[in-house]
Design a protein around this nucleic acid. Structure first.
Length: 499
RNA sequence: GCUCCCAUCGUCUAGCGGUUAGGACCCAGGGUUUUCAACCCUGUAACCGGAGUUCGAGUCUCCGUGGGAGCGCCA
């Protein structure tokens, strides 16, 4: 039996999701139990969404919760490179190899044709999926169109019938009809692979023995098994973990919950407490004690004990656990060090002082006025969240559009933040003050505070989103239906009058 | 719509045919404490439904129901 090798394969397309740490935790546990290697691989095959800064914060965040890996983009290893964008030739070769062997084919369908197709299928209540329009093109035509530089993709030829038996370590066998999977694109027209090709090629070449990933992948496993078969490789063992859920039971998303590791760090949680809590989400404590370290857990870890139902991420319990870590696991000195490493340092305080200086009479005014920058949460008065002559509902909707607008800001600097907030006022055709006052209240807990744009900048995207969300909830929230309607209107292209 | 996964207190869970269904978070009450936390004690609260197997079902089987996920040139 070969050595156990497990990988964590996140995409650097946004703040690091707690689910990434959760999956990494169980992967690491498995590796520790059998004594193998844990690999970090960056899946940056989406050129439009992947960003290097996200990769940096990803690595930092994973280290912060206490995850460690033996091979990865930052430390190298024998099977690198560990960044998929640096392995393109490998995927392209393998895709061509599949075409030559008759397991895949070129497809010239345009995005427009595909979306029309999907619309029609959805209208006729048919199963959504590619109709194999390009599967039987004559060889000469393909050659000609490829040679002429026409945009095309390579698709996997899935079996039309039969049942795929997926062995899942936690669930036993899962049977899925091949017909449920359509001909997946393997190589995109920009020459980058899709997840499905890249994951199989890399897992093979990196000698991955166990694929431990979220349950959302279970239904696409047949595609991966077909690829292993086509290449003549032995597939790895699969373990699909249950999902982390919002309070309403849906897949955890930043729309309803703080989901990023950066948020929890910034809010003052401890990395080891967060990881401990994440373990509890799917793994029952060994005995009565629910507080345990990674080392303690790995000693007794048994995958069979993983619970299969998705778990709701419960802030209350995390707060309780984190409190125990603060009180029981750290000396006062260590807490001091943690706080310095957190935000109580010159770097951070020196950014606040200029914002508050003009609002201070004595030095003693500083801490109370700065408190909201460090607080876990604030509780603004409803009156401060609603501008005069507006309703609570108006304010809720405005807050929601402010969240969307700020989420779309890629360069988190003063100019872009200001532009985004002004555009919210513009969208509603409100005086800027009617936007800035509630937003300030939502962030600072009071309508009086330092300048909004600087405050937003300093609090950071994740904290800002969460405080806006909390303000919305304080005002009664927004129904799903209303939210969808608002979003539709908000996403309409807007025509700004030209001067 | 089609397919798959899942199902014990509000939440996280123990239970692997015979239990007064246990623990933790939350909440409530009490104790301790100069205050507040912390800590300790007590309490409220659950086996989704229906058949079947069995002397006996939370536990096994089937059928419902409910929830979730997937069906992208996103991962």
């Amino acid at each position: 039996m070969s050595e156990v090798r497990v990988r964590l394969a996140p995409s650097p397309t946004g703040p690091t999701h707690v689910g990434t740490a959760y999956q990494g935790l169980f992967g690491l546990l498995h590796v520790k139990k059998y004594g193998g290697q844990f690999v970090l691989r960056i899946e940056d095959t989406d050129q439009t969404r992947s960003r290097r800064e996200y990769e940096d914060s990803l690595i930092q965040s994973l280290r912060w919760v206490g995850l460690e890996w033996d091979e990865g983009p930052d430390i190298g290893g024998p099977y690198g490179p560990y960044r998929q964008s640096e392995r393109l030739a490998l995927y392209q070769d393998h895709a061509r190899q599949l075409v030559e062997a008759g397991h895949a084919y070129y497809c010239f369908c345009t995005a427009e044709r595909l979306s029309n197709l999907r619309a029609k299928q959805s209208e006729n209540k048919e199963r959504l999926g590619y109709d194999r329009h390009c599967v039987h093109l004559p060889a000469e035509e393909i050659q000609q169109r490829v040679a002429s530089g026409e945009r095309c993709v390579i698709r996997l030829k899935m079996p039309r019938q039969g049942t795929c038996v997926v062995r899942d370590r936690l669930r036993g066998t899962v049977e899925l009809d091949y017909a449920q999977s359509d001909d997946q694109v393997l190589l995109k027209s920009d020459g980058f692979p899709t997840y499905h090709l890249a994951v199989v090629v890399d897992d093979y070449h990196m000698r991955i023995t166990h694929v431990i990933r979220g349950e959302e992948w279970i239904t696409s496993t047949p595609k991966h098994l077909v690829l292993y078969e086509a290449f003549g490789w032995d597939p790895p063992e699969y373990m699909h973990l249950p999902l982390l859920l919002n309070t309403d039971g849906t897949k955890m998303s930043k729309r309803r919950n703080p989901t990023s590791i950066e948020y929890y760090r910034r809010s003052g949680y401890l990395g080891d407490a967060l990881l401990n809590y994440l373990a509890l989400m799917a793994y029952p404590p060994l005995g009565e004690e629910e507080k345990f370290s990674l080392a303690q857990l790995s000693e007794h870890f048994d995958a069979e004990r993983i619970n299969l139902g998705g778990s709701i991420f419960d802030l209350e319990k995390l707060n309780w656990l984190n409190g125990r870590y603060v009180r029981e696991d750290r000396t006062a000195e260590q807490i001091m060090d943690e706080m310095k490493a957190w935000l109580l340092n010159d770097e951070f305080i020196s950014q606040i002082v200029p914002l508050l200086q003009q609002r201070m009479e004595t030095l003693g005014d500083f801490m109370p006025k700065a408190a909201f920058f460090l607080a876990r949460e604030v509780s603004p008065e409803v009156d401060d969240l609603v501008p005069k002559k507006r309703t609570a509902d108006d304010a809720v909707q405005m807050l929601q559009t402010a969240i969307w607008t700020l989420d779309a800001v890629l360069e988190w600097d003063r100019a872009h933040v200001e532009e985004a907030i002004r555009s919210v006022a513009q969208y509603w055709e409100w005086p800027v003050r009617d936007v800035t006052v509630p937003l300030t209240a939502a962030l600072a807990g009071s309508r009086v505070g330092p300048p909004l744009f600087d405050t937003v900048l300093l609090l950071g995207q994740d904290i800002v989103r969460m405080r806006f969300l909390q303000a919305m909830n304080a005002l009664g929230g927004l129904s799903k239906k209303k939210s969808a309607k608002l979003e539709k209107a908000w996403r309409q292209p807007r025509h700004v009058a030209e001067t």
